[in-house]
Every structure is written in structure tokens, then in C-alpha cells.
Write a protein that binds this DNA or RNA. Structure first.
Length: 167
DNA sequence: CGCAAGATTATT
DNA sequence: ATAATCTTGCGA
């Protein structure tokens, strides 16, 4: 029996959510993607977060309720997909780094490539993953083996182990 | 208004 | 190791 993750799943500490998201299935525009690599970002105590210095137009959705997409453009070229977590006002988000396209059995490794594969751009910022039939996260009831490492591509708060991937 | 930095990727 | 490429956010 397939169960969609509800608000209470996303409303927890972002590192817990990022950890628990590994092995879950992302439903994006009706397409099913197994989540195999994530990272956590948190405004309150994490200098690496876009939201660390407070809200800006770009980071506004991170300050809102959980279960919403946060999509931004990086290096002028690549988009990145995130899911907002924690209660409203506690800005945080899980970066989706790698997924496996289940219908094509294809591994898509890297945030920019994930967005390219799914045609995700900034117009997809703020999509609700709790209510919409074509978008959400499905708990497929698996318990994956995980590896935990430092996050990739950042200059601040590099030591913290907030990157999670399937072994 | 100018400018430096950036949650990446492909190529050398 | 480095270029590509342009939005964003900050300071003046």
C-alpha cells in the first residue's frame, strides 16, 4: 500500500528529513524518482545556507511552511531542486542531489542534472508537494543503507555531516 | 549602480 | 584544476 508523506514528515529538523528522504520516491509531474542522495541546509545555525542572513526575495519560500519546492539558479547555468522543511519561519531545505528515474532505470547524479532531466526551472519554485496529485513524496517502505559525509561545493560550515547517500 | 560570490558541471 | 555564465544581494 502506497502512502504519501504528509506535513508532519517535513516539519522536523532538516537533517532528519534529509536522512529519511533517502530511499523514498519523489513524484514530480507524475514521474517517479527514487531519491538516493540529499543534503540539508538550515538558516538558523548553518552559514552555508542561502537563508543564513535572513529572508531575501529568492529565499522566501524557505521561510514558509514545509513540503514546498525551493528552486534556484546557480552559476547562471544550473538549477537546483530543494524541499522546504521545519515549521514556518525556521528556514531550511533539503537539496535533492541524485535520483533514479524508475521508469527508465536511469541514475541522475548532481543537482543540475536532476533539474535538467525533469525540466525544472525557477517557474517551479513554490510547488506544493503535499496537496497536488502530480507532485509529492511516496513512502515506499524500504530501509536503505546510508552513508553520511560532508556537503559538496560549499566554502562555509564544510565539516558538518549533512550529506546523505544510499550505499 | 557596480561588483563579487556562488548548494555545478564538463573539460583539461 | 579551471572555465563557463548570469543572477543575486550588498554596499555606495
Amino acid at each position: 500500500m502506497e502512502k504519501r508523506l504528509e506535513q508532519d514528515f517535513f516539519e522536523r529538523h532538516v537533517a532528519e528529513v534529509a536522512y529519511d528522504l533517502i530511499g523514498k520516491v519523489l513524484l514530480w509531474n507524475g514521474i517517479r524518482l527514487l531519491i538516493t542522495e540529499t543534503e540539508a541546509y538550515r538558516a538558523i545555525d548553518d552559514e552555508a545556507s542561502h537563508a543564513f542572513k535572513g529572508p531575501t526575495p529568492r529565499t522566501q519560500v524557505m521561510f514558509g511552511p514545509p513540503g514546498i519546492s525551493y528552486v534556484y539558479l546557480i552559476y547562471g547555468i544550473y538549477h537546483s531542486l530543494n524541499i522546504v522543511t521545519e515549521p514556518e519561519v525556521f528556514a531550511s531545505a533539503v537539496l535533492i542531489r541524485t535520483v533514479k528515474d524508475l521508469s527508465h532505470n536511469l541514475l541522475i547524479s548532481g543537482p543540475g542534472k536532476v533539474c535538467k532531466h525533469l525540466n525544472i526551472t525557477r517557474k517551479n519554485n513554490g510547488i506544493n508537494l503535499l496537496d497536488e496529485s502530480l507532485y509529492g513524496v511516496i513512502d515506499n517502505n524500504t530501509i536503505p543503507n546510508l552513508v553520511t559525509t560532508p556537503r559538496i561545493g560549499i566554502t562555509k560550515n564544510k565539516e558538518i555531516l549533512w550529506r546523505f547517500l544510499m550505499k
